[in-house]
Design a binder for these strands. Structure first.
Lengths: 157, 157
DNA sequence: AAAAATATGTTGCATTTACAACAATATTAT
DNA sequence: ATAATATTGTTGTAAATGCAACATATTTTT
């Protein structure tokens, strides 16, 4: 006869915790990689720069929504990227409001391509034991999941 | 004729970034849930308590490896859980070394069950639009992936 | 037209976090 | 036996983060 505790469902066995733990490990590994390769950007700055390169002329608040940071820290990340010469910022209007828009600089593009080239092989090697089909399937499912989460979360950016 | 930039592979389109963003959203949602339900634990404390409940008599460093925090912060989380009366700590030996082991208290078990009951339905509803088979598949693939990551990461706990 | 609400960005602060240094003890090397 | 190394936990500190408050300007409400 089984004790009830044997069939208890634990949060730490859930997909939510698996997601968080895998993500934490991945983040640590990429941070270590950036240090080892002596890359002069943090992971957050890199992701922000990549996002700016895709969305030219985006304003700070919209960028904040993309990178899931609040306006304060988005501004700080952009301060750093601007100070390093990888983006330029300029005042413009959006819906008749004054906003700070931005674009990637020539040096920013160079830096981005350099980082991409440096890390591409290493990142690919991380999934070498996983069936590429599974990788795609996971990414698709995660995306669907994230869209659901975005409907539920109270964002106040 | 296509420009080269059209086929550039962006980090922000990779599974690594998708993983991080989905995890960040999930974390924010669960934190909001804990606040709304007036739960007297942080998510980290909850995960630690759940881990202790499964691994009775574990020592601090081993717990740190489970929850992927460093020893310092693991100790701080345990200070809080002990102060709230949800765990007990006691000195013992492991491999002839003095260690601080711990166990969950009666109140801790009650609190854990209470939280589980409170959040279970809500968490399940988050994946209601996803095929349960896909959820399982994602969890399995993430677990395989995490095991690979654990081989690569430089852990210094 | 005046007041209230909204949008955008910045500043300040309190919390979290990671990392290094330390203390205490045990093991291994010389 | 003594010195060097390793294990475990704690303390201190600097960086990252989120949240609230503020400043400015525009829109909406009354």
């Amino acid at each position: 006869m089984k004790a009830k505790s044997d069939c208890k469902v634990h949060y730490t066995d859930s997909i939510y915790y698996e997601l968080e733990q895998t993500s934490r490990l991945m983040k640590k590994i990429t941070a270590q990689l950036f240090t080892k390769l002596e890359i002069d950007l943090t992971m957050d700055e890199y992701a922000a720069l990549d996002t700016v390169s895709i969305n030219a002329g985006i304003c700070q608040r919209d960028l904040a929504k993309f990178i899931l940071k609040d306006r304060a820290n988005t501004g700080r990340i952009l301060d750093s990227l601007e100070q390093k010469g990888f983006i330029t910022r300029f005042i413009d209007t959006k819906n008749n409001r004054l906003v700070k828009k931005m674009g990637i600089t020539e040096n920013g593009l160079k830096e981005l391509d350099m980082i991409d080239a440096k890390i591409e092989r290493y990142l690919k090697s991380l999934t070498r034991t996983i069936d590429p089909k599974d990788v795609d399937r996971v990414q698709d499912t995660l995306k669907s999941f994230r869209i659901e989460l975005e409907k539920v979360v109270e964002i106040n950016i």
